[in-house]
Design a binder for these strands. Sequence first.
DNA 1: TGTACATCAGTGAACGCGCGTTCACTGATGTAC
DNA 2: TGTACATCAGTGAACGCGCGTTCACTGATGTAC
Lengths: 206, 206
Amino acid sequence: MRYSKEHKQETHARIIKKASVRLREKGAHGIGVADLMKEAGLTHGGFYAHFDSREALVIEAFAYAMDRSIEHWRKLADETPPEKRLSTIVDSYVSTVHRDDPGRGCAVTALGAEIARESAKTHKAFAAKLEQLIDVMADQIPDVPRKTARRQAMGTLATMMGTLVMSRVAGSGELSDEILASGREAALGRAEATKPTAKKARVKVN
Amino acid sequence: MRYSKEHKQETHARIIKKASVRLREKGAHGIGVADLMKEAGLTHGGFYAHFDSREALVIEAFAYAMDRSIEHWRKLADETPPEKRLSTIVDSYVSTVHRDDPGRGCAVTALGAEIARESAKTHKAFAAKLEQLIDVMADQIPDVPRKTARRQAMGTLATMMGTLVMSRVAGSGELSDEILASGREAALGRAEATKPTAKKARVKVN
DNA sequence: TGTACATCAGTGAACGCGCGTTCACTGATGTAC
DNA sequence: TGTACATCAGTGAACGCGCGTTCACTGATGTAC
């Protein structure tokens, strides 16, 4: 063999890493194979030594992005006392930093609607990673049955993601900041509201 | 003049109407000018008698879709007693019918992430319509100051939109249905929680 | 009312361009002796 | 250790195709007389 196995793997990983950033920034169809390879310091011809097709790269790059999110959330949770874990994740997600840097942010908000229209293969891969994301979120909700935690996690995630999409649509002015603030409040308010004591209080008024 | 002014306007409207469906279904870049014209029963050459560019059509078609949403929400609200208006809108939005028919659904969930990457012109048009959507939503929240209503509206909208995006990413199986149920609960739970009495109860536990 | 002309929405061929993919080739490095 | 050979990651030209846009033309209908 000309190059060591590691060499090829390293190149492969580099392509995916750079692509995962640019695809989140520009959309699943917003950047071409040639430019993606250039990002990795290569020419376009070598692409097919690493991937069967452009679509295969999109799938791998997406999975990579989702794995980084999952990893990031787990790390945030590890560094935070249990009762503050959820709010720490929400605060880091629903932020101007995240809004203004989609390339290193959540792949669901950046690519979700587009991927939902792709081939069944791409779609399936995306759905599997979303399920993992829900699980990590549910892990941060203590003192309730798993089913409740998952339900809670889905609701909170939906608020977080919807907030980010809306804030990006709104640009980066006053309205956008207002949306972020409202979304943060909505996500955390509900999180608070379903803690055991809070839940009791909420039930009282329904 | 060959045709009456009305004739051209009718054709123009027909192109936009059909395009607004197909663009929501296939994405802002998912269908070409020729196919869009075919949808309207025309050939592609005539396109530029109606629009300066493809982008101009996307902007008009998007605005049309948003206007239909706004109209639909207002109509739903008119037909519903005040205290049930918000939940009626949420129920119709966070539904399998909406999830499975993006072409006739909310343009923000279908195109939001994509449009956020477009030219400033497109982006601005989108942002203006989003603001209107927030206003309509805020109109359905009675008994609180306008500012609170708007904040509440943004949070609820974020949950609704995030839920729909997530459910579409999840496909149309069990997970997807679970996401819809959780999102509906999250959106409505919060709406309840911020009614005057509920708000008081929630403050108590914070 | 009937006829000649002007208008312009709509047609369909053609354009230039960018994209995903293919392919013959290169040359640095691992392997065999 | 040194040399000849084999491998294959990476190169860059070329391909076919679809797309947005342009343009010369058409022909149905409104208008002028």
